[in-house]
């Protein structure tokens, strides 16, 4: 088995692989990326500590400010998360359409 294989069987298996095993690994990769984004933005930790005062400010005013501050941070981070999600969905969508899309465009240019 070599890294680059141009046998006839392999060429015909190409589109089939693209939408089966290839797609499966892309979906795994997609979920891994999402988990990584969520981890990087510490969404779980921030949600867990939503009602905990920030920086040891245990006074009533400190708690209230903390809560609102955390909400603001969470909104911002969720925005980032959704942007990341949108980008990942775009990449997945690109994966799905790129093969037929390129072939279609080639045919359109030629004919």
């Amino acid at each position: 088995m070599s890294v680059f294989n141009l046998s006839l069987g392999n060429v015909f298996y190409f589109p089939f692989w693209w939408y089966t095993r290839g797609l499966k690994s892309q979906l795994v990769f997609f979920s891994q990326r999402l988990k990584k984004i969520a981890y990087a933005l510490a969404l779980k930790i921030m949600l867990k500590s939503l009602f905990k005062p920030m920086f040891g400010q245990f006074s009533i005013s400190g708690r209230i400010i903390s809560f609102f501050m955390r909400v603001v941070i969470l909104v911002w981070r969720f925005t980032l998360f959704f942007l990341g999600l949108a980008w990942q969905i775009f990449l997945l969508f690109l994966y799905l359409i790129i093969l037929p899309g390129v072939i279609y465009l080639i045919f359109r240019i030629i004919f």
Partner: peptide, 28 residues
Amino acid sequence: FLLEKRASLIFLISVLTDLYLFYSYSLF
């Protein structure tokens, strides 16, 4: 891709071959 037909064709075929390279490596 209809503006520069020759260049577009070369580019699209190169994308196709790159995809094949990606496929071949993943399969490996």
